[in-house]
Amino acid sequence: MSFAWLGVMPFLLFALLFLILPTMKIVVGSFQTNEGGFTLANIANLFQPSILSAYWISIRISLASALLGCGFGFLVAWAFVLGGLPGWIRSPLLTFSGVASNFAGVPLAFAFLATFGRLGLVTLILRDWFGINIYGLGFNLLSFGGLTLTYLFFQIPLAILIITPALDGMRREWREAAAILGASGFQYWRIVAFPILWPSLLGTFALLFANSFGAVATAYALTGSSLSIVPILLFAQIRGDVLQDPHLGYALAFGMIVVTGIANGIYIWLRARSERWIK
């Protein structure tokens, strides 16, 4: 019997106290009555139209911003890794991605208000120079589309940062071997490159999804409580602004864990299926 595991005790204790137990508290609490008995009523309470629609819009925003983030992030990463751009462009782009992926939260909301808000720079330029009134056309920063557009500001750079190493791992020989065997560029991507990148893309997608699903600050600073997405609902609930039932708060939080858990479960399952060729 070795006692080597004792060396990680401090870490395990920390993780237990400040990560595992708080999460467990939420999970357990969502199945408890005020008196501490078991109940499914809290979970059942989630299935009311206003809460369901909040989950639905949260999931849609997260899916859209994760999908677009992966897509655009992939294209940009491809452009400077494989697309034949001069080498000097890489380092500033990666540094900027590091900055932008961390430039989330309250200031990001301010930036988008100052740019795409009713008096924002882009809004005014489009209106005064091109005669396009985007608000007249139905655009609203405080909506599904507006929030997705805002989230992309940190989602795309995050995707770039994760996908770049994967693209760096694509060997030139694979491309050349495919070409000399008669494959077109499209065939190479379909049969070789894309399946190799698939696990990284899936991982990026799962991370981006969780990233935007749990984001509170940007949405809250942008919309106050006017846009009903789950994290904002939960935020208001914890503050005691609305929804007086504390156990509904547990259930809301539990629902968030379930959604990100499912997203990651799907990711792990798909990855295991697509990675048979990796040691």
Binding site: R171, E173, W174, E176, A177, A178, I180, L181, I191, V192, P195, I196, W277, I278
Partner: peptide, 13 residues
Amino acid sequence: GMVFQAYALFPNL
């Protein structure tokens, strides 16, 4: 037909 120095098999196939 071409054979490369190394590592040119498609790892996913």
